[in-house]
Design a protein around this nucleic acid. Structure first.
Lengths: 152, 152
DNA sequence: TGTAATTTAATCGTGTACGATTTAAATTAA
DNA sequence: TTAATTTAAATCGTACACGATTAAATTACA
C-alpha cells in the first residue's frame, strides 16, 4: 500500500461503512421527535409498519423482514404488548411459533403514523427519484454484504 | 393520500430509512469476524481508525467526528483502555477535557487492521467509483437530515 | 415407532446509543 | 473578585442488537 492510499485508509469520511453508520444514526435522531408523539421507538415503529402491511405475523417472519434475531425482537415485542399495541399468542397449529397481532389500538395508531414518511422525505431534502435510487443502491449493497459475509 | 401511495407507505422496502438501517446492520455483521481477530467491536474499530488518523484527541473531538455523545463514548473508551489500546488522561491545560492517546499496543494494532478495508470493499461487490458515489450521497443525506432535524 | 435432527422463541451476558442529570472546571459578566 | 453561565465528562435509566445457550415442539428417517 502506498502512502496516498494509507491516508485514505485512515480517513473516516472515506469509509462507506461509516457513512452508512452515521446516516443511520441521523435517521434515528430525526425520527425521534415524531415517534415520541406516538410513543414508539424507531425499531418499534419499523415493526409496526411491517404489521400494518401484514397483520398476524410470526416472530420469525418479522425477524426475516427486519434482519433481526429473536433475542432482539422478543423484548421489543413484549414492550409493544405492554403498551397495548399488539397481542402475542402461541400458534395453536405450531406451538413453537408465536403470532403477533395488532390490537385495535395498534391498528388505530396507523392513522397518526401516516403523516410521518412525508415529513421525513422533506427532511432528507431529496427529490423522490434520488431517494428511490439511493434506496435501490443500499438494498443492493445489503444483499451483496449478506452473500459476501460467508467468505470472511 | 391515494390508495397507491398508502401501499407505498406500508412497504418497508420502500423506506429509505429502513434500507440505511438494514445496510448498517449488514456492515456490522460483515465486520464482526474480521474485528473479532483484533479484539474490537465495530464502534471501537471506528474510534481506533479516528485515533490512527489523529492521535491524542479529546473525547469531545472524537464525539464530534463520530456523532456520538459522551454517554456512549465514555464506557467504550474505558473498555479500550481496559484492553490496553488507549490511555485516558485529563488535559492539564483544561481539566474539563479528557485526552485519549494510543498506547504502543494500540499503535501496533494498526498494521493488523490495514487489510480490512480491502476485504470489505471486496465484500460490497462495488467498484471504487460506485462506492465513492454512494459514500458522497450518504454524507449529503446525513448533512441534510441534521439541518432538517431542527424543523421537526 | 421411536429417536435424532431441526426449528422456534426465549433467556442471558456484553456492548452500544441516547436523553437527562450531575459534577467539576473554565469562562464570562456584573 | 465574586457570581452566573457555559462547557466537558461521567453517570443513570431505558432500549436496542447480537451470539450462545436452552427448552419445547415438530419433522425426518432408520
Amino acid at each position: 500500500m502506498d502512502d496516498a492510499s494509507k491516508e485514505d485508509f485512515l480517513d473516516l469520511e472515506k469509509f462507506l461503512c461509516f457513512s452508512v453508520y452515521a446516516a443511520s444514526h441521523a435517521f434515528n435522531r430525526i425520527y425521534k421527535p415524531l415517534l415520541d408523539r406516538l410513543g414508539l421507538t424507531y425499531p418499534q415503529y419499523l415493526v409496526m409498519v411491517s404489521l400494518w402491511q401484514e397483520d398476524d405475523q410470526s416472530v420469525r417472519s418479522i425477524g426475516q423482514k427486519m434482519f433481526l434475531e429473536s433475542s432482539t425482537l422478543t423484548p421489543l415485542l413484549k414492550r409493544l404488548e405492554a403498551n397495548g399495541l399488539v397481542v402475542r399468542k402461541r400458534d395453536p397449529e405450531d406451538e413453537r411459533s408465536v403470532r403477533v397481532r395488532l390490537s385495535n389500538e395498534g391498528k388505530a395508531l396507523r392513522e397518526k403514523a401516516e403523516e410521518i414518511p412525508a415529513c421525513i422525505l422533506d427532511a432528507t431534502g431529496l427529490d423522490i427519484e434520488t431517494a428511490k435510487r439511493l434506496n435501490r443502491d443500499l438494498q443492493e449493497l445489503r444483499t451483496q454484504l449478506e452473500s459476501g459475509a460467508k467468505k470472511l
